[in-house]
Design a binder for these strands. Structure first.
Lengths: 229, 229
DNA sequence: GACTAGTTCAAACGGATATTTTAAATTATG
DNA sequence: CATAATTTAAAATATCCGTTTGAACTAGTC
């Protein structure tokens, strides 16, 4: 009997990488297996041989992307959990923004598309991709907000922070997807990941402190008019 | 000669409404003309008779959605442009969040899908939908940041505010799209649009003030370790 | 060096689905 | 009632894509 051959694993890996990229760029439905194979310099039959079908390839590719991302960008950003919460937030946001802007980190892009146009596969993987992220962020913010903070307040602040990081990715993707010659493209990101993260951290720390102050005083502010019809 | 018939306009309108809804829920590619017609209680041929094809229907429906939204939710939220900038921001955010959460406001949902999966049609309409929004927001923030603010700082703060409003819509959509019986659904929005807007305004006003303070002092903060491989 | 199972390949399969058109039937309106 | 505007059902059109197959190939083993 002969052992598995080395070249087999190589094409399997190429397939995995191409699949990550194309699924991230186009989503499960729009990405064509033929194109994935072409990008991987493999025959169309390779997908079925190595993975058993497009669906299984999708799940495998997503898992692969997640593994790569968390290895490259630990969620705490390298800041120990004993550090002051402001520093931990900085680490987390920086790691997140870098990850979002790294063209090789594809898991969040896949997750994003899955949200908008679910393939029906892998609700499993979805949570695996997103849950730890939210938990870490909420944990940090809980400390920042202090012991009296309502769970609602924590969730809202986490949303505010995450939304900003996410927006950076969305903006960058818009730049990529736009036709190169389009006269009216959105203004490019003139700054690098670190400067962007810096803004988000400063903005958010102040925001969280304001919410903390508001919670303590039980503030409510007047409504504003203007509604539907 | 007989004039155009009334029933013709009626089905044309029903078609427009159904198209808005389905294009917003599924995007241009995934939405089927047959389903649009079924929802509008019209024959499949109706799309071609009234609009000349799916593409033209898409553009017309989007325009229709935009018109409805701006009529229902004026961008200034009813706050006069002479009001203090904090009030104007409150008005703007409140209008935006209400609009994002109103199931009948579909233009932003269509735009959102178009961003992620462009149909290639109507870069025109896209800008028509988004540009005025960004301009109003940046104008308000420019005042809040003061005369010394760099254009970059204005753009970043506008991004921070808009991202939060957008996240609200995204979260609500996730709730809709999730399988009803999914054990693990994201936590629902327990609060109404006004409370959400209230949080965003408080968070953002503090954030903008912090950025303003940082700009004045020319602050820069130290980098944090943790990167790619 | 030959054997063999793991791997690649080109070509075709099979199936599905959507948009658009057509021509006849119907209806509102002047 | 006459007529052009709509509606209708069915056929036409246009793609297209994931998967299979059986033969050819090749790395690794004996």
């Amino acid at each position: 009997m002969t052992a598995n051959r080395a070249d087999g694993l190589e094409t399997r890996n190429r397939l995995l990488e191409s699949a990550c990229r194309l699924f991230a760029e186009q989503g499960y439905h729009a990405a064509r297996t033929a194109e994935i194979c072409r990008a991987a310099r493999a025959n169309v039959a390779a997908v079925n041989y190595h993975f058993g079908g497009k669906k299984q390839l999708y799940v495998a590719a997503w898992r692969h992307a997640i593994a790569q991302s968390v290895k490259a960008y630990p969620l705490d950003g390298g800041v120990p959990s004993a550090a002051p919460p402001a520093e931990r937030l900085r680490g987390h946001v920086l790691a997140l923004v870098r990850r979002f802007l790294d063209a090789r980190s594809l898991d969040m892009k896949i997750a994003d598309r899955e949200m908008l146009h679910p393939s029906g596969l892998c609700a499993e993987v979805m949570h695996h991709s997103i849950k730890p992220l939210r938990e870490m962020l909420e944990q940090i913010i809980r400390v920042l907000l202090g012991p009296d903070a309502a769970p609602e307040a924590v969730r809202l602040c986490a949303m505010s922070v995450h939304a900003q990081c996410h927006a950076v990715m969305a903006h960058e993707r818009r730049l990529r997807n736009m036709p190169r010659d389009g006269r009216r493209r959105p203004p490019p990101l003139t700054m690098g990941p670190d400067a962007l993260a810096e803004h988000i951290v400063r903005f958010s720390l102040a925001g969280v402190r304001a919410v903390r102050a508001g919670v303590r005083r039980g503030l409510r502010t007047p409504a504003v008019k203007g509604g539907r019809r």
